[in-house]
Design a protein around this nucleic acid. Sequence first.
DNA 1: GTCTATACTTTGATAGAC
DNA 2: GTCTATCAAAGTATAGAC
Lengths: 215, 215
Amino acid sequence: MSLVHTKNAATTSRRRRQPEAETKADISRERVLVAAAQIFNEKGYSGTTMRDVGRAVGLQAASLYYHYRSKDELIEAVLDKGVDDVAASVRAAVKAVPETASHKERISIALDAHLRSVLGSTFSMSARRVFGQVPEPIRRRHLKHRDAYGEFWMNLLRDAAKGGALRSEIDVRLARIFIISALNSALDWYKPEGKSVDQLAKQFNLFITDGLFSS
Amino acid sequence: MSLVHTKNAATTSRRRRQPEAETKADISRERVLVAAAQIFNEKGYSGTTMRDVGRAVGLQAASLYYHYRSKDELIEAVLDKGVDDVAASVRAAVKAVPETASHKERISIALDAHLRSVLGSTFSMSARRVFGQVPEPIRRRHLKHRDAYGEFWMNLLRDAAKGGALRSEIDVRLARIFIISALNSALDWYKPEGKSVDQLAKQFNLFITDGLFSS
DNA sequence: GTCTATACTTTGATAGAC
DNA sequence: GTCTATCAAAGTATAGAC
């Protein structure tokens, strides 16, 4: 039957009536993923060993291979979840904006949602940290997830530009990268002990939409 | 006599009249450093082996230990040179600005110099890439170099704020981090095939000082 | 599903000849 | 200064018992 490694094939021994009952395998797999995100975030890609991850979930390193084929498959899952979660969260926030809102309002909401989402997710923290450390093939595959989210922002900005909301000298493509990079940079230095995410979001919004200088 | 590992003790066998004649050791040490920066930048901290570095300079891995005590001493040198070079370059550019210049002009110059310097230096590229991967003690020591440069920017911005050039709602401390992070982010995605550094600098200047939205 | 045992590989670093 | 030889440690991954 070979159910191994096939996340939802484990529906066999289901006893409850929920359409998506979680098997023990599902649960372990999930716990491993969460722990991996945590540890990759702390120690980086090469710095994290399968033994580390195993210890964190109370399993032997060898047992992890029942859930993930390799360390690389594991980190790829972390990476992808990192950006997909943020993308979903921002899309939802923007979708909730009334049609009547201005371009600036819409983009402000998106900025805010991105920052909050990113700072609140171990997966995106982890993804940012290890992205540059991961083997090339993984990075290449993962890039598709980033690009999809990047496209979303491109549309947001293109609409604003068409509506005449943006400065005319601006290269929209560059602006998109600038925005996302600036927001993500918070992952490198933000410490919850200082400013609240709320205050941070307000300042970033100011920096990005209005700039630093007055008049 | 034990001259080993003491960079300038090698002045013993000097034959030329230059006050700083380079011994063979100096030359090798330098070549190793440059190669290391290159390779660390490509493969990251744990991804780079002493064998890799040795191969790049035509030495055996073991021979590197004549010039650097350890892999960590080597990467720390790369890290420090990365930020020190940029700092020196930006300080020089700002020093050359006429006293009569406005705060905005001064800061524009600094932005420009930082971006150019960072994109032109293998050391700063490498430093950015590996900073998050390096053992904690190294990172901690290295942080002093960053902080020194950060202070320079703080003064620049504080002056501008005092002069009333900045928007009053702005948190200067946060603005400093925002600026440096945004500029450095170019290291992650800039490709020489696209826009020129010139164009890039102009756009960044616009984004940061004036913001994205018109009026 | 998870364990124990272990094969295999790679790495940072040292010793000592030249 | 650089080489050859080598070691000890650590890591990924597999095999097979339970």
